[in-house]
């Protein structure tokens, strides 16, 4: 898994590519927490390149989103497709997170 951050005016974009599994899901959570500590309110996870996510990954997404929500911020998901999208749908997490097709659509809501 690779995480590439880009600082934008209203949010930090995190481009996540590869596989998020039991061994590396904590890396995503830690990367997000560094931005939250830094004062970032809105994180946008760009997931076009995410090929796989297991329940340990879902746990990281939920944990980060809950922290941001309690700080009046949000974790926004973009570009979910394929198996990761099915995993979010099966667990009814689409609807719990704001989910958009593109980062442009997500940014327009902030």
């Amino acid at each position: 898994m690779k995480i590439e951050p880009t600082e934008l005016e209203k949010a930090v974009l995190l481009k996540v590519t590869g596989r998020m599994d039991a061994e590396n899901a904590h890396e995503f959570e830690e990367a997000c927490e560094r931005w939250i500590t830094h004062g970032t309110k809105h994180l946008i996870a760009e997931l076009d390149g995410l090929q796989y996510v297991s329940s340990m990954g879902l746990r990281s997404f939920l944990s980060v989103a809950q922290k941001l929500q309690s700080a009046s911020g949000s974790l926004i998901l973009c570009g979910l497709h394929g198996l990761p999208r099915q995993v979010f749908e099966m667990t009814r997490l689409i609807g719990v997170f704001p989910v958009f097709e593109t980062t442009q659509q997500a940014l327009a809501t902030l």
Binding site: S54, S55, L58, R59, Q66, Q69, T91, V96, F97
Partner: peptide, 10 residues
């Protein structure tokens, strides 16, 4: 979101 337990989905 606020009440969702983070585990138990596996």
């Amino acid at each position: 979101l606020a009440e969702r337990p983070i585990g138990g989905l596996g």
